[in-house]
Design a protein around this nucleic acid. Structure first.
Length: 281
DNA sequence: AACTTCGCCAACCGCCTACCA
DNA sequence: ATGGTAGGCGGTTGGCGAAGT
């Protein structure tokens, strides 16, 4: 037996919103706010709509700060970079683009961006990585050593063994939640000859880039991700630590050319001017 | 001009998760 | 600890206008 529907679909209006309904919803939210209960809102606002429908309409269309269309090259790059790293987590991607909604970004990707060369590369990159471990969303945070594919089996050139090098032990902000499994799909493919602990660089850095040790338990605001599209390549990292018989992936990181400078700074308030993320949460 | 195909995007659907009693 | 509920999310659909034949 499935769960009860959120509203009576037979009685509520569906389909496109009329201008009057938009006005009704807009004026109600302006006057009373959302009130923390979308299910009750349509009744209070005098709308014959499902609460979910009202929420979607407000978030995707009526919110005052919404922007539609007119995507910039910079936004394109941000979307492509993030898609290559985290896949179709549209809400996360949209959160890095002020005024954009997940639905809008998703539509933009599916209808336009996917066809562009830059986006095709990102799509290919993501698809190949995901193939190595199965769907990224179900990639285990604790992959079994015996089932992990070696680097030579991975078709993604940027993730070949030559690019791999362990660095000083330490931990960036460690997130053992589900998102880390999502982001670490690439790292999980690596099958080291013996248990190891430390940060693993998964792609070759630009020449003369010094991969600095990562400070312990540094929490960074990742809002600067919105700017990453303007700079360099997105590189993956992941913390691989010895967990008895298995390898555990418990952190994700992206490294950029300025990371040495970044880590050398004030870690507590660090926000790299050229973008570096250590989690996607 | 009429018809078909294509592209775009708003909206829906159903699942998952967080929260609360 | 458990079950119910609402919010949030990503995938998909359907309607409509534009472009092509």
């Amino acid at each position: 037996m499935g769960r009860a529907p959120c509203c009576d679909k037979e009685r509520v209006k569906r389909g496109p919103w009329a201008p009057e309904e938009d006005d009704q919803l807009r004026s109600y939210v302006r006057a009373h706010g959302i009130g923390g209960n979308w299910i009750a809102l349509p009744h209070k606002a005098g709308l014959n709509r499902c609460g979910k429908s009202c929420r979607l309409r407000w978030l995707n269309y009526l919110r005052p700060d919404i922007r539609h269309g007119g995507y910039t090259d910079h936004e394109d790059r941000v979307i492509c970079s993030l898609y290559a790293s985290i896949g179709s987590r549209w809400s996360v991607i949209a959160s890095k683009l002020p005024g954009r909604t997940d639905n809008d970004v998703k539509n933009y990707w599916n209808t336009k961006l996917k066809k562009k060369p830059m986006a095709r590369a990102a799509h290919q990159h993501h698809a190949q990585d995901a193939t190595c471990l199965g769907p990224y969303s179900s990639a285990p945070a604790t992959p079994q050593t015996g089932t992990a594919r070696s680097w030579t089996q991975c078709a993604t050139p940027s993730l070949q063994p030559a690019a791999l090098s362990p660095v000083a032990s330490g931990s960036s902000s460690v997130d053992t939640g589900s998102s880390s499994g999502d982001v670490c799909f690439a790292a999980a493919m690596y099958q080291p000859p013996r248990p190891m602990q430390g940060l693993v660089r998964l792609a070759a850095p630009p020449p003369n880039t010094d991969l600095a040790p990562v400070p312990t338990a540094t929490l960074l605001d990742d809002a600067f991700l919105a700017d990453l599209g303007a700079y360099g390549d997105l590189l993956f990292g992941g913390l691989i630590q010895d967990d008895k018989a298995s390898l555990e992936l418990s952190a994700a990181a992206c490294y950029f050319p300025n990371m040495t400078e970044m880590w050398a700074g004030d870690h507590a308030h660090a926000k790299p001017h050229q973008g570096l993320c250590n989690t996607f949460t």
